[in-house]
Design a protein around this nucleic acid. Sequence first.
DNA 1: CGCCCTATTGAGGGAGATCAACTCGGGTGG
DNA 2: CCACCCGAGTTGATCTCCCTCAATAGGGCG
Lengths: 223, 223
Amino acid sequence: MRNFETDHIQGGAGSAAAPRVTLGDGVVVPGFTMNFARNEEIYGEEEETDFIYRVVAGVVRTTRMLQDGRRQVTGFFYPGEVFGLETGEVHETCAEAVVECRIALLRRSAVEQAAERDLAAARELRAITARHLERTRAQLTFFAHKSATERVAAFLADMAAHADEPGTITLPMSRVDIADYLGLTFETVSRSFTQLERDGVIALPSSRRVEVRQPNALVGYHS
Amino acid sequence: MRNFETDHIQGGAGSAAAPRVTLGDGVVVPGFTMNFARNEEIYGEEEETDFIYRVVAGVVRTTRMLQDGRRQVTGFFYPGEVFGLETGEVHETCAEAVVECRIALLRRSAVEQAAERDLAAARELRAITARHLERTRAQLTFFAHKSATERVAAFLADMAAHADEPGTITLPMSRVDIADYLGLTFETVSRSFTQLERDGVIALPSSRRVEVRQPNALVGYHS
DNA sequence: CGCCCTATTGAGGGAGATCAACTCGGGTGG
DNA sequence: CCACCCGAGTTGATCTCCCTCAATAGGGCG
């Protein structure tokens, strides 16, 4: 693990001794930002939950290793989103940079103290947790009883919502990442991409580049 | 839907005009309790999120109907646990009594106002949400890449932890409920019960009665 | 140009869904 | 008290989708 305190730290906007970053919605707490290279670990499983993280730029994945050696991707996080917020003493997930990332780190103790003092901070923390809960619930009902191609279609529809350029998705993550997120194998994910292309729902100029031809067919894909 | 305000309402301990119930851990807010018969609806999908609920006695299931007509059981709730806490204006799930239940109802607005005033209430609300998040996350990673019998074994291990009498589980819910919770069909759940019995891990004196013969084999069941 | 990593495509097998028959148990009414 | 009924559960046969193993094709970088 890297030394967070000394390794190319960047405080917010030319800050002095106590740099501060925003947790979200106007709440500002002590913290600093760091850059992470592609596939670099941000925090590891079993590591102490000293920090809470916010994506400034890039994409992050959180993963968990299962007993049988498989890997479950529990979420992808995009700019503005908070991750690594867990109640236990140690992380039950691992976080890695999917692409080159800039991440804001907030001391967990500082955030929790802020929540004990400040009702706005408490509300913000509650909102973040509630958002995570909603998303996890959606993920759960989403993947139950859905075919491989339906899952991939739903995933792409979600990605399309995040895309800068409407109608074109540049996937930051690999087929393996997508597979581990959707509970499939990367071969099956690949086959689903091909099927969606054959059906004329998407086009694949390159493996990481997806052009959405029929947005409606994508969101409501079945069979 | 029943009229909550007038239908066999029971305030806390002989209360007067403004009965109060506990949200949890000492936090008390205005509310009342009600009884629900087996399979009776507590709240429905699309119904407004006016209340937050706490199980006083009995077992509750929350469900969601999927587009294809399937039903997903999103959770079972036992005495002391809070359910129906959603951020949206209307419920995305439906809650029903699995067995005869006594439920405490708390006005959502009252709880949220309490959280805006009282840091202890805010912390309690945060803790409940965090607990739900942890559980949902566990559910998600648990059901990914697990065989039918492994899922059923894990479910029974969890039920055994809730059981009054150690080593004996009296299942309040049907095979269909379990199947919809675990993302299986009820036939497969039934087969898994039979398999666990054949393996000597459990005994089934009756379909709703499970005697755990090998607790260790149950928690760590594989293949 | 050649290496390596990622992605695609193919063939075969297995776990669970589906459809269907049958059993069990509890409640009701004659 | 017994016969009937109905819902819940078990078991069987078949089929389908996805996993697995394996070979092949791109694509970026030295």
